[in-house]
Design a protein around this nucleic acid. Structure first.
Lengths: 367, 367
DNA sequence: CTGTTAGCGCGTTCAG
DNA sequence: CTGAACGCGCTAACAG
């Protein structure tokens, strides 16, 4: 017995207690300790007491890895997003975290920074980890290479008993074992744009984003469809790209304003972009919504901090996160979402104070 | 070989390929495959080719858990915070994520919702997981029970070869194996309050938070010290509690305004609280900073979305996250922070547009 | 260069 | 009720 103590002392200075240590101390066999812990098997009272005492004294904590190896393991929900600092992502992450912890799962988080390479690396790590579900959210460039890679990953994950969930990304095609959680993105864009048109606006700037990305593309499509509905011709000059942050949005809007003030309303692809745009608009001496109306998308905190309060499209990010986890875990269970693999959540316009009719005389602006 | 295929098909429908499977397919032994993967050991070219082929065909992914068991494993950095949706926390999380991924570590995230019980549960899970570092951020009630529990956990974690890092929380006392990352919290509060006093304000409302919590207590202390420096008596009536969210802050400020408008400046304990306060102030017809000046704390996005732009205290949240990871991982290494276990980061006031001298005649308000 | 043997910590047989 | 033996997937030691 003494040698064992030495063994503990000379090798690694730190070592966490194992079942063996506890067994030795309680003078029982390893399986007995295991049974005491599991509690699902009869153990003599005296023995149990001794074991429990040893457990406490040695501050025993089970080794998740060994457990996982044995099959009882460490269920985790992994997710990848572009940047935790974005409010939309944060809400999404919150939904995931909440739901995962309701299911007793741990959360594994990776940030991709929007880089496909980092995303792939993260995906691989998660596969190694044996995560029960791997959830990805965020816009991408939906090209051939992407679909091929993702399909492969979905298959591989599926084969390993895990589930890939794509949020806010289009499906990969029939037969690919993937779960999709979407929201009515195009419809939301159509709805806000219509709101602007209904107020009398005819020259609406589509501001921010990049049509190469799926999310932007869908919002763009909603914008065009609304235009068509109202018989307003689409004009390329009214589409201005900008990165997804305040700073770039501010600069781009300033440039556009310097070039020409030929619009009466702005549809910012994101609330954050709207924040940047608003700043540029205000600095240029324009009143919102007096001179120009402004709408955003996402309905996240910047929307209620801005003056005027921003009219925007509400996206149920938190619910998306919760749904993603439910779908993945319930996948072959019997719950509400069992066997379902495609969910579409609703969006709706939140009317606030940033929209008004165009100023007199500008409703029919020069072509 | 055919039996093996069957074997895969009849048992669990899904099973990830193991080294054994690969070895069988490549007609080599298991360790050989292992060596090909590790790449740190000579393997005949032909053999290597065959193994690599099998690896690819079977879509092999190493099992992290088995690896961890063997000692090579799955280094993870775990962290616990109150709520990902808070911008300060999000920035912190970003710093952690970034640094962890630089070190090739995976991130384990738990949200406590501010509940000590959930925090403890999360801590335990992370201990089981064998996380290399466990980082906690956020205010707590620093009582006897808390210190005892935390000390115990720190010891236990240390014994298991892991490291506990406390961010924005006070040390636990001498000899406790814990790493502390703090910022100049009291000093920041002292600095903004001084700024207000220097502008001529004498009746400054301390708004939001709860002195029971460490973070609030320190900011409160800075406020009082500044008052003392300027010889301005402290008045209990000028301290108003509010929860850490816009909504509650708004309501509390409205109540306070209805009761008495006996202050010329507000020190909001948080930028988010400032956002709520600003709304109430504005709605009450008060000009900021014309009628009342307003400052916040944290320097997170709400600060630059509000009008006027908020004067606030910059807290290096992202850097704290990075530092926490570095300290934990470098702990017994040779890097910049080796053997260091207490770091204090600086804060500074960011001057923007929400402070002005008090309106004439109010500088010396009625007692 | 390669295969055999052993063991990480745990849970599950199967005998007593 | 309890212990001995086995194996999860992997790597490190030791043979050849």
């Amino acid at each position: 017995m003494t040698n064992d103590f030495r063994k503990g002392a000379d090798g690694a200075r730190h070592r966490r207690a194992t079942l063996k240590d506890v067994a030795r101390r309680a003078e029982v066999s390893v399986p007995t300790v295991s049974r005491v812990i599991a509690g699902d098997y009869p153990v003599a009272l005296g023995t149990r007491r001794r074991v429990e005492k040893a457990l406490r004294e040695l501050d025993y904590v089970a080794n998740t890895h060994a457990r996982a190896l044995r099959g009882h393991g460490a269920k985790t929900v992994a997710f990848i997003l572009r940047d935790v600092r974005g409010q939309a992502f944060a809400q999404f992450a919150h939904g995931i975290e909440e739901e995962a912890s309701r299911w007793g799962r741990l959360c594994l988080l990776c940030v991709s920074g929007g880089d496909p390479v980092r995303e792939l690396r993260a995906l691989n790590l998660m596969r190694q980890q044996g995560a029960e579900a791997v959830i990805i959210i965020g816009s991408i460039v939906d090209d051939e290479a992407y679909r091929r890679q993702m399909t492969e990953i979905a298959r591989s994950l599926d084969q390993a008993g895990s589930r890939l969930v794509l949020c806010g990304r289009p499906p990969l095609g029939e037969g690919v074992p993937v779960t999709i959680v979407e929201y009515e993105n195009e419809a939301g864009a159509h709805a806000v744009t219509s709101r602007l048109l209904a107020a009398g606006h005819r020259r609406i700037l589509l501001f921010g984003g990049d049509v190469a990305f799926t999310t932007s593309a869908q919002r763009f499509a909603g914008y065009r469809r609304a235009l068509t509905d109202y018989g307003v011709p689409y004009e390329e000059d009214l589409v201005v790209k900008a990165a997804f942050d305040r700073g770039d949005a501010y600069l781009r809007m300033r440039e556009r304003l310097a070039a020409a003030r030929d619009f009466t309303a702005v549809f910012a692809l994101t609330d954050v972009i709207a924040a940047g745009a608003l700043r540029a608009l205000t600095e240029a001496g324009l009143q919102v919504p007096g001179d120009v109306s402004l709408v955003g998308y996402d309905d996240v905190p910047p929307a209620t901090d801005l003056r005027p309060l921003l009219t925007t499209v509400h996206v149920p990010y938190e619910e998306m996160g919760r749904t993603a986890v439910q779908l993945a875990l319930d996948h072959r269970g019997s719950g509400r979402f069992a066997r379902e693999s495609h969910v579409l959540l609703g969006t709706h316009v939140v009317f606030r104070d940033s929209v008004a009719p165009p100023p007199a005389g500008t409703a029919r602006a020069p072509r």
